[in-house]
């Protein structure tokens, strides 16, 4: 049986959007079975902004799954933001996995990070700052493998903020690709298998791409979609 996944990212809510975002989600239960939100939920990563996000998504008729983005880390209260989102009844992935829809849909993921793409990426070599940058991504990718391994569901979807492939970055300046994603994320998902990877972060990028292993990748950053959310139906034969 098919599952319809709604997804959006980079909604960047702040005080100016309080009470106004929710109407974009009206009727979502008729279009989708679950809503994934791929990070950069806030502008400045403050707890106040996190509470606005929680209020706008609280009590939706479909399950909501978040990951945070780099903006949501800016004020060093990312754990507190995750807590208010969970208190609002939403799932927050932090290099972890969750099973939804009576065990039919598994979602794994987290913020992700950068480093670049195969052949043009940074290495764990040289100064400690460079090593730490690359290690952060490598350790995230390892945790994603573990998270995906833990899922035994009909469908598996990965939710990230940073991109696993460069195809969905087309439109961004190539010089900044290493700050937009890493091939290590795609490599981890290709190794464990998934039906779809959803990410944001690249506002000037392109919606559709694919991993080297053939897993569909969708950049759902709001400026890319220019619509309230995208909807993907898994198992096309039944859609």
């Amino acid at each position: 049986m098919s599952i319809r996944v709604a997804a959006v990212a980079d909604i960047h809510l702040s005080e100016a959007q309080r009470g106004t975002y929710r109407e974009r989600l009206d009727g979502i239960e008729e279009r989708a079975d679950v809503l994934l939100v791929g990070g950069d939920l806030t502008r400045h990563g403050t707890l106040g902004e996190g509470k606005i996000v929680a209020d706008e998504f609280r009590g939706l008729p479909v399950p909501v799954v978040f990951v945070l983005g780099n903006h949501d880390y800016h004020s060093d209260v990312e754990q507190e933001i995750m807590a208010v989102l969970r208190e609002a009844g939403c799932v927050v992935l932090d290099d972890s996995a969750e099973t939804l829809l009576d065990g039919r849909l598994g979602i794994a993921g987290g913020k992700g990070f950068g480093g670049g793409f195969a052949g043009k990426s940074a290495s764990e070599f040289g100064e400690p700052e460079t090593k730490a940058f690359v290690r952060h991504t490598r350790e995230i990718a390892e945790r994603w493998r573990t998270a995906l391994k833990s899922l035994d569901t009909e469908y598996k979807v990965v939710l990230s903020h940073y991109s696993p492939v460069k195809e969905t970055l087309a439109g961004e300046p190539p010089e900044i690709y290493p700050f937009l994603g890493s091939y290590l994320l795609a490599e981890a998902v290709d190794a464990e298998g998934a039906d779809l990877i959803v990410h944001g972060h690249a506002h000037h990028g392109t919606e559709k791409g694919m991993t080297p292993g053939g897993i569909r990748v969708r950049n759902v950053a709001l400026p890319v979609l220019q619509r309230a959310y995208a909807t993907y139906c898994l198992d096309a034969e039944e859609c």
Binding site: A6, R31, L196, Q226, R227, Y229, T231, C233, C239
Partner: peptide, 13 residues
């Protein structure tokens, strides 16, 4: 400002 339209058609994967 980013223009946000209605959700639109779903994509079949």
């Amino acid at each position: 400002c980013v223009e946000v339209r209605e959700p639109g058609e779903e994509e079949h994967l």
